[in-house]
Design a protein around this nucleic acid. Structure first.
Length: 113
DNA sequence: CTAATGACGACAC
DNA sequence: CGTGTCGCCATTA
């Protein structure tokens, strides 16, 4: 168990868990909300840890995409799980692996205050 | 302790 | 408008 940065993962999980269905947010938005403006990479890293540990069953990691609306993490999900889940939630897709982020964007800084 | 990596982002060309 | 480069910072080798 990492002791120092355990907080970082916890914060990421906390935010991602609160993303409502049919909504999506970006790595940068989460990182910014956490106070780490350019720590977007770490957000994905933390999420990767969730799938690895099986936490993805509790954390909607599929609702976190990059600022372009692309499912950058789709490769880490089995098959097209990431895309299929978003479709089930009613998320509009512009392309096969690109969602209408402007329409479904969920900003933690605004929604969580 | 140093080097490389990554589910990103912004900017330069 | 596509591609390349740098920055950021935790994690791993």
């Amino acid at each position: 168990m990492s002791s120092s940065s355990n907080d970082y993962y916890d914060r990421v999980y906390e935010v991602v868990t609160q993303i409502p269905p049919g909504r999506v947010t970006t790595y940068g938005a989460i990182a910014g909300y956490l106070g780490v403006r350019s720590g977007a990479r770490m957000v994905g890293y933390a999420l990767n840890n969730t799938l690895k540990t099986g936490l993805d069953q509790q954390i909607p990691a599929h609702r976190v995409i990059n600022r372009l609306g692309q499912l950058s993490g789709r490769a880490y999900f089995p098959g097209d799980t990431m895309r299929e889940r978003l479709l089930q939630e009613g998320v509009e897709f512009m392309e096969r692996y690109t969602v209408n982020i402007e329409k479904h964007f969920w900003d933690p800084a605004l929604e969580l205050s």
